[in-house]
Write a protein that binds this DNA or RNA. Structure first.
Lengths: 338, 338
DNA sequence: CTGTTAGCGCATTCAC
DNA sequence: GTGAATGCGCTAACAG
């Protein structure tokens, strides 16, 4: 059907080797023959077969990305950063989406996924020692993005620091009754960012010398609706918090809804701080922690290419900083000694 | 390095053909030999090479998706539908992201992209006759999603009808001064959905017998900020509109911002209707047109697989309906004969 | 049922 | 500089 390298060679009256050379623009081809080959390729509408090339080269010129819940803003943003970095290289990107714990396990078992790419980026998924062993065993460079394991290169984001930052911001504003809403700790996907943000929250509280109030900590499945319910519980407490730190902007929206439902004004009656700085946060004037989603994706891709190039960088465990974005949903509590 | 089919054959004391058969679980293998082969594979840690398989089969078991601005909710939603449909089939998905007009052109020229997939789905990008010719020429089944061309299968969404619906809803509410904010018509990417929504808007206005007011039509680049400016212009008119139809929810947010900036209450002073029904729309109580993003992605994938299976369906040009979602940003104008 | 052989399309030695 | 030969790892057709 489609013309092959052999057809071109025949048409140009040369050997396949020569055609291959012009294909890879080797300097060892005389100008005249090169032109003859080029002409033949054009005449035959020839397009080299990527698959054959891969087999012969032993490289796929493809990198894989494994991501859970790929519609979540935090993951889309990272993926976008990866894509941006990739277009410069014309590597292909194959996307594996994980939506159930079974898919997660299957993915790590299914080595064929790894065998069809030159490198892999895994987003957010928790990696156990056993997983790391499998990954390393198959010998395809893999970087963890927004996840961590001692044996694997990673681009992580300082979640603990972010949690601390958010809480400290609230404390600096004068709040003493600060609640936390986040994901459950036993995520079947091994997500731990919410847990680390909680850790930062606890640290900040402790440093400030506030007593620990278990009732101010509410965990549930990720999402606006659950967070809404959780916030309602918090607001119905005898001694309700004056501020709520939500482990993600999405959950912060649920908190905002709950406040609205309870006729509480934000930030006058309740301060809210989110996490992620998703696009809509600015529109909503939501005070939040900005994490570099796009940039972290870029850096993961860059790191992967360095690994692929054979010159691995010194430091392969990178931790990116975050910063608080002060907007309108966090302010001093009504009574200074709330 | 890694074990090949030949190593397994040797270790199991059989021919490569037999190994291949158990790999593809052919029934023509006796149970004892099958087990022997399986044991050898396990012992050697054998994993078949996807690349070699592709070369031999002439199929890549991969489908490609070309999408512009892949972070926009409308595209993410569609992609998510495609992914969902794909996981059932264990086809791989390679993602091509287009962010500049140059990339768009390069993508259609670059046949190698098409040669490395069994089928292709193109999201939103306008397809010219020349593009369609190229696509058909290379003979890889391609379906257009949220785009259209007579020669190519497509899953489109009834943008014109949606524009009409939105406008009719406003008219039914009693509005007569209805403005439109949308994307410029000469998108370098060939996007036309905004333009079609505008067409529906005009049709509804005409049907209702309203006179055409050029000043009520404002076009600009896609995005909240531009829409914000455009809305400001509208609101500064001598005879400002009582309702604004934004061609996307993102743009509707800009309109909402503008209303807020002008101290106008929504919907009392200004009605706003968006388009897309993105996730945040519900939170914002935004009246909008719901378009089936996820489902359209699924259907595109389904259609592509039908094409791939060799039993092409009768109808390959599918138009999906939309519906208005009545929420809080659209209400009757203050003065009934406003 | 099973071993052998011949490609799949290209890159890469080698000699010339 | 250039052509011919060999191999990448697997499937499929063909004998047995």
């Amino acid at each position: 059907m489609a013309a092959t390298i052999r057809d071109v060679a025949k048409a140009a009256g040369v050997g396949v080797g020569t055609v291959s050379r012009v294909l890879n623009n080797s300097p060892f081809v005389s100008q005249p023959t090169r032109e003859r080959v080029l002409a033949a390729m054009a005449a035959l509408d020839y397009q080299p077969s990527p698959t054959a090339r891969r087999l012969a080269l032993g490289r796929t010129h493809t990198i894989g990305v494994i991501t859970p819940f790929f519609t979540r803003p935090a993951f889309v943003g990272r993926l976008n950063g990866i894509l941006a970095e990739l277009t410069a290289t014309n590597y292909d990107l194959v996307l594996f989406s994980i939506n159930t714990p079974e898919q997660r396990d299957a993915c790590f078992q299914n080595v064929s996924k790894f065998k069809s790419v030159d490198g892999m980026i895994i987003i957010a998924l928790g990696v156990q020692d056993a997983d790391a062993t499998v990954i390393k065993h198959w010998n395809v460079p893999t970087v963890l993005l927004d996840s961590h394991h001692p044996d694997l290169p990673s681009i992580a984001i300082d979640d603990t620091g972010g949690g601390r930052l958010a809480t400290e911001h609230l404390i600096a504003l004068g709040h003493r009754k600060i609640a936390f809403i986040g994901d459950t700790f036993d995520s079947p996907f091994g997500f731990i960012s919410s847990q680390r943000r909680y850790l930062g929250y606890r640290q900040a509280l402790e440093t400030a010398g506030f007593r620990y109030r278990p009732a101010y900590q509410r965990l549930g499945d990720h999402g606006r609706y659950v967070a809404h319910q959780l916030a309602l519980e918090l607001l119905e407490l005898h001694d309700p918090p004056t501020a709520i730190f939500a482990a993600s902007d999405t959950q912060a929206l649920g908190v905002l809804e709950a406040a609205h439902a309870r006729r509480l004004r934000v930030p006058e009656d309740l301060s809210v701080i989110g996490y992620d700085d998703i696009e809509i946060a600015e529109y909503l004037d939501l005070t939040t922690i900005h994490q570099p989603m796009y940039s972290s994706g870029q850096q993961a891709a860059t790191l992967l290419f360095e690994l692929l190039s054979g010159n691995p960088p010194e430091e392969t465990h990178i931790l990116l900083p975050v910063e608080v974005v002060q907007r309108g949903t966090a302010a001093p509590p009504r009574t200074a000694h709330g």
